[in-house]
């Protein structure tokens, strides 16, 4: 009995060990692929950001510590771009939440045409962001667009001539493209609510609005937070739509466009990398606020 008791853990761990080995072997390629283009480059970006490095003048390269960060953070352009990015992000995510919720409710309660609605909603998701941006740009362009021919809108309206009218079109394009994703995430939360709860609330005398605010919203809080987290971070990265519509003209540049301009257009790797690292930290802070502040829990580990 003694001997057996001693032997027992050894046998378990040998099986466990081989299971672990297999698991690690299976995971290794994907983990390496994921790290290769994230962890390493962000580390490399930090190194680059500490140097004065302009590919047009490579002979001037030198280590300048946090100098690039100083340059970026003291420039008015950076703070304008941060404002633009957060402004577009906040407004579009807010609209998406309301519209997405409405869409989710329509898809959930639809008495007919559910498949039709779901397909229609997926079209914006499937369409290339650049294509969507062109479509809306053409629609609002004073020469080609049909929007200025609509009633109540001035024929002379130059949408891309002003900062906030440009924002309006950019936000519209963003909302159009990403509301479906929001709606589907919310729908997934909606279907987990037991329909008997609504029946119970009805019997208890709750109105439709009360059922929505007292049952649907509280029970959907986790789903709403996850959807908001994903979309907020996605919104912060906005690039394609602005690039196509204004290229940052009329003070509509986002931080991602700023990074692109420094890195690729001006080939200023040092300054551009500082912008990249700062964007990375902004994203990190947003995620941190969601996870710690709102207690977003994202699915981890084996269920059950």
């Amino acid at each position: 009995m003694e001997a057996n008791a001693q032997k027992a853990p050894a046998r378990i761990s040998s099986r466990t060990r081989s299971e672990r080995k297999l698991a690690w072997m299976l995971c290794a390629p994907a983990v390496i692929a994921m790290l290769a283009v994230t962890a390493y480059p962000i580390g490399y970006a930090i190194v680059l950001s500490l140097q004065k490095l302009d590919l047009r003048f490579p002979e001037l390269t030198e280590f300048i510590g946090l100098g690039n960060y100083g340059t970026v953070l003291s420039s008015e352009l950076w703070w304008t771009d941060i404002f633009n990015t957060l402004f577009i992000m906040a407004i579009s995510v807010a609209i998406e939440l309301v519209l997405g919720m409405a869409l989710a409710l329509v898809m959930h309660r639809a008495i007919f045409g559910r498949g039709l609605v779901r397909t229609a909603v997926l079209i914006p998701y499937g369409i290339i962001t650049v294509v969507a941006a062109f479509a809306w740009q053409f629609a609002f362009a004073p020469d080609t667009g049909f929007v200025n021919h609509l009633p109540l809108i001035s024929e002379e309206m130059d949408w891309f001539g002003g900062r906030f009218s440009s924002f309006a079109v950019i936000i519209l394009a963003e909302v159009w493209k990403t509301t479906p994703f929001m709606a589907l995430l919310l729908l997934a939360g909606l279907v987990t609510i037991d329909s008997q709860l609504y029946e119970a609330a009805r019997v208890d005398g709750a109105s439709a609005w009360q059922r929505f605010t007292r049952i649907t919203l509280p029970l959907m809080k986790p789903a709403i937070l996850v959807a908001l987290l994903f979309r907020t971070l996605d919104g912060f990265r906005i690039f394609d739509t602005i690039f196509i519509m204004t290229r940052g003209a009329q003070d509509t540049e986002s931080v991602s466009i700023l990074g692109y301009n420094q890195l690729i257009s001006r080939l200023n790797l040092g300054l551009g990398s500082a912008v990249s690292v700062l964007i990375f930290f902004c994203v990190f802070i947003i995620a941190f606020i969601f996870v710690k502040g709102f207690g977003v829990k994202v699915d981890e580990g084996r269920a059950g």
Partner: peptide
């Protein structure tokens, strides 16, 4: 399978899903 590091991989994957692509463009 059961193995240590599983949660780390999932959490890491999630982090990458939220990673700003523009931040890697320069180094790449």
């Amino acid at each position: 399978l059961e193995f240590p590091g599983k949660r780390l991989i999932l959490a890491g994957a999630l982090a990458i899903a939220m990673f700003p692509p523009i931040s890697t463009v320069g180094p790449l």
